[in-house]
Write a protein that binds this DNA or RNA. Structure first.
Length: 869
RNA sequence: GCGGGCGUGGUGAAACUGGUAGACACAAGGGACUUAAAAUCCCUCGGCUAUGCCGUACGGGUUCGAUUCCCGUCGCCCGCACCA
């Protein structure tokens, strides 16, 4: 018996040091080879990596190592999304500085990542909380301010009462803060905004160019941007004493239904509503009621449509002499369109609900195909589909689209209050990106507020505006604002006393350009454009789908902004995007209903039945459903423990096998053990192979049939695994490597001829290279054991002999009436007539034909034969 | 409600433009080696009324042939959700 068991605990640190010393993964910007940029979403330095990281970084590492082997100059960096609230919470709990906590975490996590053996260029490491990084962000903020891409405006904001900060709309999930989970309140605050909405159209259109993105993510962004084309339309008010306002402007995407209008609706927050409510206590009460519902009852099913008749009336814009009531309605949003609508109940469900409740008219104006115009009516369900316009005078008979065009022209030519009555307008749901956060641990917004000169950017020569070190977190709110001296400055322009901006930037700003900084991480400017342009866009970006909207949309915006400022010359940051699935695990509960960690239990199997009990107490434990690993359910497995027990390669291999990478993968003890066994099998295979042939592969006897068959499998595997890695189908790459391993093991056990032995040696070498992106340490050990030159990390991906990919002999299944009955083996390219002749002489076929002629024979050359009887 | 995705053995899954359904792995069962265990190796492994028949959620359709395409139903997952 040859060799000892492979010992990853010994071998893995050894190879990591070898790579380190050889600077194997340090990437030069001057390398003339074709660049390839692979990036995984950088982690928040929480202190420990979790299995999700292991999966994410294993995938990225396979891609990086594969493309290195393919001769590309690969950029594969790592950094830290290091600003953010948890550091402040930790500061409060542990009485440490957020920076101290953060940098300690970074060190701990870096050690963990290094133990995974990732092919990362650590010389490019970035922490977004370091002034070396955020000074450039401040500098770009000033550029953006000057370029008109930043505004400061008072607006209603989502206020998180627990985190005591403002949240972007995207950060409010089901009315709750995305991090704290607290019910979000509305407050009026002056905030800094990036004008992402200026780019709405471009961000939407360019989605079509992102062909290497998941369709799902593109759809989500498309919906988020929420483009809608419609008409701004003025309704003239009947003169009234209640207000001086003479017209109401609404936004509609269905101006074609104007003949069916039966009311005009205002948002409870519409200025006219507010004005009317000032002298109408009932209306004021109605508005207050709407507000109570708006914020508190997110969980309730669709709130009932409620309206309040203001008593005002508007002139029907196309029906002479008719007027329509003006309602305030609870379902009309102030921050979309104009905050006012016209209601056409027959063709909008919400309008119909309101109309039925208050007895307003319901007049259909779109006739469904095939319906009778005399009898068609709308009951409880609005008709929202296609049809032709009727009951609409000069629009009668038109399609919806034609009617929209015609009515837009009609209103465009008329005037109300000296303005055009109708203006075609495109609306977007996407709002500007509010970046102000009332927090200490973030990038300071480099602005001062001078009593004389107003709001001024800090001169670039004075950057960075550094966070003060001596801060306390004994009061809720912004520690930066509480600092005794930091915010008091003198105006650089006039010398008057001034106040520093104490808001810091949303941490999504930090992550909106870090991939660019990686291309020149030590440059004195935010980017070195020539270098950035060479690397960008990122060829393959890999991360969680939870960032489908926020991070990815912001990054797309930021790249455009950086392009406008001359920092880069690309618009899209990520050419290829891959969103990996989560890591799940079974859950366990004690009798008393408490979650129990997998390490505390023992599973017993009795045939198919599985039971669990507590290791320490022996109490029975119930096995629950498979869920995403989470601390709250205690179904987490610590990567450190896995690496210590099985080694990094085993963890990496298991994370890549079995489940397609975009799908969730279930972590199981049995699965890890299988991966670990496979590692030993490879080691044994290589050991036994070198016992047969100690010298590197030379040419193989091409005449030997056994050797040829083996070489076919070897070359097909090299080809197949390459294709699977390029397509990110890691599970299939793994399966092919298993198949190759099985074939080599079998050949080895068959007292191989010299020719087969030579092929085996070739197979062992190539298998080692195929393994190296996934199990890099084991691969180095095998490579060195075989006495190969240099490191397998530097080895080229094997060439494939195309002649070995095609079989001369093909097996064709023979179907009778679509069911497989036999198969024949023929030379590749055998003509259909010849195949037909062979098939008809088959015993299985003649038996069923019983001398009769078949109705039809379908021959797909080299694939299949189907005899129809 | 709207949009998207998915339903394949005991389990994770594979099947390229419609062409041998279940590759590969896990679990399970049987055997070999061993004083014994671990490790390793070999065999079996979709179902059934088994020379055959059925089987890719269910019901139809197109086709010589459907896991794959089309229509309908059911179930699960994800995203958006009063956006006029």
């Amino acid at each position: 018996m040859s060799g000892e068991r492979y010992n990853p605990r010994e071998s893995e640190p050894k190879w990591q040091k070898v790579w380190d010393d050889a600077k194997s993964f340090v990437t030069s910007n001057d390398d003339p080879r074709e660049p390839y940029y692979v990036l995984e979403m950088f982690p928040y330095p929480s202190g420990r990596i979790h299995m999700g990281h292991v999966r994410n970084y294993s995938m990225g590492d396979v891609v990086a190592r594969y493309h290195r082997a393919r001769g590309r100059n690969v950029l594969h960096p790592m950094g830290w999304d290091a600003f953010g609230l948890p550091a402040e919470n930790a500061a409060i709990e542990r009485k440490t500085h957020p920076g101290t906590w953060t940098y300690q975490n970074i060190e701990a996590m870096k050690a963990q990542l290094k133990s995974m053996g990732l092919a990362i260029d650590w010389t490019r490491e970035i922490a977004t909380c370091s002034p070396e990084y955020y000074q450039h962000q401040q500098s770009m903020f000033i550029d953006m301010l000057e370029a008109g891409l930043v505004t400061r405006k008072s607006s209603k904001v989502n206020w998180d009462p627990v985190d005591m900060t403002v949240l972007a709309n995207e950060q409010v999930i089901d009315g709750k803060g995305w991090r704290s989970g607290a019910v979000v309140e509305q407050r009026e605050l002056t905030q800094w905004f990036f004008k992402i909405s200026d780019f709405a159209e471009d961000l939407l259109e360019a989605l079509d160019t992102l062909t290497e993105w998941p369709e799902k993510v593109r759809t989500m962004q498309r919906n988020w941007i929420g483009k809608s084309e419609g008409l701004r339309l003025l309704f003239e008010l009947e003169p009234t004493e209640k207000t001086d306002v003479t017209s109401i402007e609404v936004f509609t995407t269905r101006p074609d239904t104007i003949f069916g209008a039966s009311f005009v609706g205002l948002s409870p927050d519409h200025p006219l509503t507010t004005a009317l409510a000032a002298s109408n206590a009932d209306l004021a009460e109605f508005v207050a009621e709407c507000h109570r519902h708006g914020t508190a009852t997110e969980t309730l099913e669709k709130a009932e449509k409620q309206g309040f008749d203001t008593g005002l009336r508007v002139k029907h814009p196309v029906i002479e002499g008719q007027t329509l009531p003006v309602y305030v309605a609870n379902f009309i949003l102030m921050d979309y369109g104009t905050g006012a609508i016209f209601g056409c109940p027959a063709h909008d469900q919400r309008d119909l609900d309101l109309a039925r409740k208050y007895g307003l008219s319901v007049k259909p104006v779109v006739l469904p195909p095939g319906a009778d115009p005399e009898t068609f009516s709308v009951a409880d369900e609005a008709y929202v589909d296609a049809g032709n316009i009727f009951n609409s005078a000069f629009l009668d008979g038109l399609s919806i689209d034609d009617a929209k065009r015609k009515i837009a022209e009609y209103f465009g030519a008329r005037q109300v209050d000296g303005k055009s009555q109708g203006t075609v307008e495109t609306n977007y749901r996407l709002r500007d990106w509010g970046i102000s956060r009332q927090r200490y641990w973030g990038c300071p917004i480099p602005v001062i507020h001078c009593e004389v000169c107003g709001t001024l950017p800090v001169p670039k020569k004075d950057l960075p505006v550094k966070l003060p070190e001596d801060v306390t977190f004994d009061k809720p709110g912004n520690a930066l604002d509480h600092h005794p001296t930091w915010k008091h400055v003198h105006c650089h322009q006039c010398g008057a006393s001034a106040r520093r901006e104490t808001d810091t930037m949303d941490t999504f700003v930090d992550s909106s350009w870090y991939y660019t900084r990686f291309t020149a991480p030590h440059a004195e400017t935010p980017t070195v454009p020539a270098v950035a342009n060479r690397w960008l866009p990122v060829d393959q970006y890999i991360g969680g789908v939870e960032h489908a909207i926020l991070h990815l949309l912001y990054s797309r915006f930021f790249t455009r902004a950086m392009k406008a400022m001359g920092h880069v010359d690309v618009s899209e940051p990520f050419k290829g995007l891959f969103t990996q699935g989560m890591v799940t695990h079974e859950t366990y509960k004690s009798q008393s209903g408490e979650w129990v960690n997998p390490t505390e239990i023992a599973i017993e199997t009795n045939g198919e039945a599985r039971t669990a009990k507590h290791i320490r107490t022996g109490d029975p434990i119930s096995i629950g459903s498979v869920e995403k690993m989470s601390k709250s359910k205690k179904n987490v497995v610590d990567p450190d423990e896995i690496v210590a027990t099985y080694g990094a390669d085993t963890a990496r291999w298991f994370m890549l096998s079995d489940s397609p990478p975009e799908r969730d993968v279930q972590w199981t003890e049995a699965g890890v053990e299988g991966a670990s066994r496979f590692q030993q099998r490879i080691w044994r295979l290589v050991n036994e192979t070198i016992e047969l042939t100690a010298s590197p592969a030379a040419s193989v006897d091409v005449q030997d049939a056994g050797a040829l068959a083996l070489r076919r499998i070897i070359h097909r595997s090299v080809h197949g695994v390459a294709g699977d890695i390029e397509g990110l189908r890691f599970n299939r790459a793994v399966a092919q490597i298993y198949e190759l391993t099985n074939a080599l093991t079998k050949a080895l056990a068959s007292s191989p001829s010299p020719a087969v032995t030579a092929a085996l040696r070739e197979g062992a070498e190539k298998l080692t290279i195929l393994l190296s992106p996934m199990m890099p340490h084991l691969a180095e050990s095998c490579w060195s054991l075989m006495g190969m030159h240099g490191l397998v990390a530097d080895a080229s991906w094997p060439d494939v002999d195309p002649a070995l990919l095609v079989d001369n002999e093909v097996t064709m299944p023979v179907q009778i009436n679509g069911k497989r009955r036999a198969e024949i083996s023929v030379a590749k390219g055998t003509p259909a007539a010849e195949v037909e002749r062979l098939v008809l002489s088959l015993e299985e076929v003649t038996r069923i034909l019983e001398g009769k002629a078949p109705k039809k024979i379908v021959v797909v050359p080299d694939r299949i034969v189907n005899v129809v009887v």
